[in-house]
Every structure is written in C-alpha cells, then in structure tokens.
Write a protein that binds this DNA or RNA. Structure first.
Lengths: 143, 143
DNA sequence: CTTAATAATAAGAATGATTCTTATTATTAA
DNA sequence: TTAATAATAAGAATCATTCTTATTATTAAG
C-alpha cells in the first residue's frame, strides 16, 4: 500500500475545496465548489477522491447530518456542535468544551460521546480486512 | 400536539422489538423481527412507527453506522462504542467511561464528542418549525 | 518521438435506505 | 349504521452513494 501522490488536478481541487472552509462540507457542496474551477468534474470523481483523501489521512468524516456525510480537512480530533435546526456543524476548539461552546452562542440540547474501535469478537476474529471507508458490502449485517 | 396512545398492534410490536435487544437495531432488523409476529407488516409501517416513537420520546437514534440508522429503546443518554469492523454498537454503561470500555474488551481507536443543539443563527431566526426527525426537505442546504 | 501500460476521469446506470402516495382497512364518535 | 378519522400495506419515488465502462491523461520503455 503505497502513498498517493496527489497528482491529479481534480484531487487537488477536492482537497483545496475541503480545506477552504470550516463548514464541514458535504459531497454536494464540494462538487459545487470544485465545479467553479473544473466545470466538467463529475460527482463520482468527487466521491472517489474524498475516499482517497480519507485513506491517506488528509480528510476525515465528521459524521452524517440530515442524510449527508460531512467532511473536515482538519484531521486532528476535536469536538463538534451540530445544529439540529439547520445542519450547521461548528468546531469546538479546545477544552473546556462546555465553556467554549457556551461562548459561541450555541444552545446545547444534548451531548453525545461515541467510541470507535474494534469489539472483542472482531479482535479475536482478526477481521482487519474489512473496509473502513465507504459502505459495507451487501448482505453484511450487524449483530 | 397531543400524546400518541400507542394503540396499534403494529406500533406496539415495533417498540417491543426495539426494547427486546441491546444491539441498537436497524430498521431492517426491526422489520425482520416484527415480521415473525406480524408477517404482513410493511417496511413503511416500521419507518412510520419508529418516527412516532421518536417523537413521543420512547425511542432515540444512536446514529448512522454503515449507512443504516440505529435505534435504542433506552432513552437515557449514555455513551456507545461502535465497532468499525462489524458495525456492532455496545452500551458503555457508566463513567468512568474509559475504564469501563477497557473492561469490556473493546479496543478504542478514537473517541468523538458531538454536541447537539441550536446555533446562534437559528436561535435568532427562531427556526423552531423545522423537522427534527426524518430527512430535511429537498433543496435545503447547510451553510 | 511512438507505443504500450497504467492511472484517473466522465457519464450514467445500479443500489439501497428512506420517504411519499394512494387505496384500503380499522377505529372512534355521533 | 353511518360518517369521520387514523393506521395500514403496497409499492412508487427520491436521493445519496457506489459501481461499471468507455475514454482520456500520464508515465515508462524502447
């Protein structure tokens, strides 16, 4: 598995678009943005290059809001605030989180913590081959 | 907005199915489960009744894993651990979280915190009318 | 400079979760 | 009993995402 060279203008444009904003854009937004520079770029190319960027670690997902996956070019872990009214995603820069978020004027309804990792069963089974990006294959089901 | 009476057998079956497991089931799983008791029940009915249950507060979403929304009949906030290999979602019962999760044999890769609420702009605009359940209408876009 | 091999792309079809529509059936109120 | 209302089943529609394929760009070798 060798490193990507980031050598296509499309890939550069996708990464630039993601890095150009702090709004944690969706694929749709990224496509619109990149199209202003590369009018012919296709949606599939956006998806593929986001995937490549995630695999090489230059982009992370910040989750699904209103059925659209949202991305961040700042890959260092930091908390986010999601507005359940408009779908906006806001960076909460540093701890103490609660203090910070209050200063920003965001009214917190609830706070949720999720741990991501590998469960006992998968650790045993050594299922390290499964995709971590994109959907799981058809027919695959959680337990 | 009056309270639902939970009076259809389909709705009861959906809620029972969700409460019958701690696996944080998907719509697909709930449908399969309920079909063993009500063979003719349709997928649309599952979706509609989950929505009703969420609105009345008897069910909460624990997020989207591998493109499927997952639900919980335990509505009191508590952290979860998501296995990125198999999609399993595990309850982390009490604090101290890190300690607990370690005991459970789950290997933590990363921990993410998300605040949900209302942003400054929406507080001002009083956009309290927008749907909080289900998708946002077409054409609606984040900023 | 060609040519061959390979990688990336554009276009659009396919997939699949979710939502919507509509005709039908069950429930409630009068 | 009838009328009004609520819930349902069935399946079509929507839409984000993935997959397929033919084409174009890039690189390596002679």
């Amino acid at each position: 598995m060798h490193k990507t060279h980031n050598n296509s203008k499309q890939r550069k444009a996708v990464l630039e678009a993601i890095r150009s904003t702090d709004t944690h854009p969706s694929v749709r937004w990224i496509h619109e943005q990149v199209k202003t520079k590369l009018p012919g770029i296709s949606l599939g190319t956006i998806y593929r290059n986001i995937k490549v960027c995630r695999e090489e670690g230059s982009v992370v997902s910040v989750g699904v809001v209103n059925n659209e996956e949202r991305f961040d070019g700042i890959v260092e872990p930091h908390p986010h605030a999601v507005c359940t009214k408009c779908g906006r995603i806001i960076d909460i820069d540093d701890l103490p989180e609660a203090e910070n978020i209050h200063l920003s004027g965001f009214t917190v309804d609830k706070r949720r913590t999720v741990f991501y990792g590998t469960c006992v069963q998968c650790c045993r089974a050594g299922k390290n081959l499964l995709a971590q990006f994109g959907r799981l294959r058809k027919g695959f089901s959680h337990n």
